[in-house]
Design a binder for these strands. Structure first.
Lengths: 329, 329
DNA sequence: CTGAAAGCGCTAACAT
DNA sequence: ATGTTAGCGCTTTCAG
């Protein structure tokens, strides 16, 4: 491994000078600079990132912690974060907490240990509020943690209202909501939106808890439909949940959207791959990730940020699991 | 930040002693050890990982480079790698090369710079052979790079043969193969398996290139079916490709499996979510990831490895997109 | 403009 | 058994 000393020797200057040209800091004569450049090239020298990090206490890495990399929503988000980060010269370290609060803790520790410059925390089922007071800049993405942590989310409540309204307008008389895990703020907000609409419509409703896992959602739905055979509309708290519901329905021999209509939430590409394709409330996933990344980088670079709570808007995408207009799309 | 010096002072010993108890190396008197432990606890001291890395040239991190985190195959793989790595006390850094050879290069560089202890390279569309001679231990996963790099793959050719045979046995007369990108060894092997079977069966066949992206696969399939309306079987090189094909078929008003039967490749959970659910060749994804991780860790710890080419076996999973027996499943 | 030297936090000879 | 000290490779005062 060639070091800064080698370069210095080769260029007949001191290590300080080499460091100066490396960081474009301080005065360096043209001549010295050229000599150093030449030496760098000749020796194929590349500064040691770890040594730099040790001194600077900065690694130009940002950590992204997701609860379940296996849920297509998160890879999508990760791509966005990565795109932006790369643009600004940061490398992102993707950590899969696996819905395990211990793992999340562990990653948080490891990341800090590695002097990451900032961390983006995404929605975790087992959300814990006492996210470390201080240390690195953080932003919460698709997750509300605490007031003092800048947050990027989408309009969950409004989205849920749109979804429910769409179901009502499409003729549903008995609508079920497969709500997300209790205690998850985003899930709670979606439930709230659902309630708002059913309460002022003349439709029957029922709410059951599901999570964001396919098989479990399928099971829950099966159980639900057995108990309430007259359900003719389902609003699921995520697209994966909706996929499980769709499967359960098809297994029971009912048709979508003729017998039961479904609306999901998330807008992951995967919803379009289903047959029938899934009507859903699309979150601006890429934009959410990008916003969070930009926000974090501003925080890191101590630039002013305009606001600390960003709510991006959701869209109703009508596809084939509902009969509403546009279903032809 | 509390350092080893603080601890030493607090415990009234030298830094060397603290280091010794930290690393359980060398002799330390019981008394000294207890004093140090107490100080550590009291000061909530946590050794600085970066400083350690700088000295040891080892970070207890392993890098995992994937071509497209958005393809569900890879998150699945990542989970397996992570599980094993965690068990052995390694943290995995997941890098999304985005099918971009430059990004892959860059990550390779960054990882080395960070003194990762090892790297797992997974299948990249733009596979490049001259993966850096030396430096860190590496293993290739679902990807053949070079003889000297230990490799973990599945039985691609055999899997493809099973798939094609299944289609033939299910009554297909004109089978199309949506092959993966040219130059990708795994894709080439699947093609080879396909050819082997069609050549010794009395069925017509056609091969077109698709990639592992949903929309593009849908387009390719649409085009293909227009040109060859009599195709009644499709073997797709990946499940995502198959999903695209399924969509194209359903858009054209044909039925699966009545008019056209489909077999995918990968065995990602997502295939089961489709309606009809996808018959596929399942790779032992988790096992592949776990094997690669264990192999890499052995390499890192300089333990003997038994073999350097691991081929794990694939399985035919019959679901609803084919008429073969078991389709009831 | 440039160099010597201290130090980021830790480990490992080498003494004692 | 324990302490002193010299680095790991880099950056940054502080002199000159």
């Amino acid at each position: 491994m060639t070091t800064i000393r080698d370069v210095a020797k080769h260029a007949q200057v001191s290590v300080a000078t080499v460091s100066r040209v490396l960081n474009q800091k301080g005065y360096v004569s043209k001549k010295a600079e050229e000599a150093v450049m030449a030496a760098i090239k000749e020796l194929d020298f590349r500064p040691n990132a770890v040594a730099r990090t040790l001194y600077n206490k900065s690694s130009r890495m940002i950590g992204l912690i997701v609860p379940d990399i296996t849920n297509p929503f998160f890879p999508e988000l990760a791509r966005a974060v990565e795109d932006i980060a790369l643009t600004y010269g940061y490398t992102v370290v993707l950590c899969n907490a696996d819905e395990d609060i211990k793992k999340e803790r562990n990653y948080l520790d490891v990341l800090k240990q590695k002097y990451v410059d900032g961390i983006i925390l995404t929605n975790n089922q087992l959300s814990f509020s006492e996210v470390d007071e201080a240390g690195v800049p953080m932003v919460a993405l698709d997750r509300v943690i605490a007031d003092h942590i800048p947050t990027v989310v989408s309009t969950n409540k409004i989205g849920a209202e749109m979804a429910t309204k769409h179901l009502v307008e499409s003729g549903c008389k008995f609508i079920a909501h497969l709500r997300g895990p209790k205690g998850l703020p985003t899930a709670d907000q979606r439930l709230e939106g659902f309630r708002n609409v059913v309460e002022q419509s003349a439709v029957a409703s029922v709410v059951v808890e599901a999570d964001f896992h396919y098989e479990r959602s399928e099971l829950v739905t099966e159980e639900l439909l057995k108990q309430h055979p007259s359900i003719d509309g389902i609003f699921a708290s995520s697209d994966v949940t909706a996929a499980g519901a769709l499967k359960a329905i098809s297994k029971m021999g009912k048709r979508v959207p003729e017998d039961i209509q479904i609306v999901g939430f998330d807008g992951i590409p995967f919803g379009e791959m289903l047959v029938p394709s899934l009507t859903t409330i699309a979150q601006p996933i890429y934009q959410m990730g990008a916003t969070a990344a930009r926000l974090l980088i501003k925080l890191i670079e101590k630039k002013p940020i305009e606001g600390s709570y960003f709510e991006l808007s959701t869209d109703l995408i009508i596809r084939e699991t509902t009969k509403g207009e546009g279903a032809a799309k």
